[in-house]
């Protein structure tokens, strides 16, 4: 084994350190989720912690720290595409004519009378 590869793959200490960090972050996110300290920021905070955890896994367990280049580009592209898929779908649903969304907690009371009201929906006002 050459000295160069030995250098590239650090010893087990690094893996254990990452593992401990991951356990600590898990404990943190559970504690925050249970106590509802973050309030309406609960989901963003939980997701931020998840992003930190996954970054650790990707960089050190999956060696993206050592093997950059095209590999990093591949992962980044995939993530950007997922983000845009989710983003544009949510944007569509959020900016629609309200009755054009499926009947939800927010729009059910707007459902007009007449035919085709979804089952179980008690229609109320005629015009949004």
């Amino acid at each position: 084994m050459s000295a160069e590869t030995e250098h590239k793959h650090a010893g087990p200490g690094r893996y254990v350190a990452v593992w401990i960090a991951l356990l600590l972050f898990t404990a943190l996110t559970v504690a925050l989720g249970r106590s509802h300290l973050a309030g309406s920021w609960g989901l963003p905070v939980a997701l931020a912690i998840a992003v930190v955890k996954s970054t650790l896994v990707v960089l050190f367990f999956m060696h993206l720290w050592d093997h950059g280049g095209a590999n990093r580009l591949v992962l980044a592209t995939a993530l950007v595409f997922v983000a845009l898929l989710i983003g544009l779908v949510l944007l569509d649903s959020a900016t629609r004519f309200p009755l054009a969304d499926p009947p939800t907690e927010a729009t059910m009371r707007l459902m007009p009378p007449g035919p085709g009201a979804p089952p179980g929906v008690e229609p109320a006002a005629a015009r949004p």
């Binding site: 845009l84 544009l88 944007l91 569509d92 649903s93 959020a94 900016t95 629609r96 004519f97």
Partner: peptide, 22 residues
Amino acid sequence: GFFTWGHHLFTSGQSTVDAGIF
């Protein structure tokens, strides 16, 4: 080409904002 898919949905009840972007 990945971010033009919404032009298949112009009459599907997609929002006007998304229709503009796509």
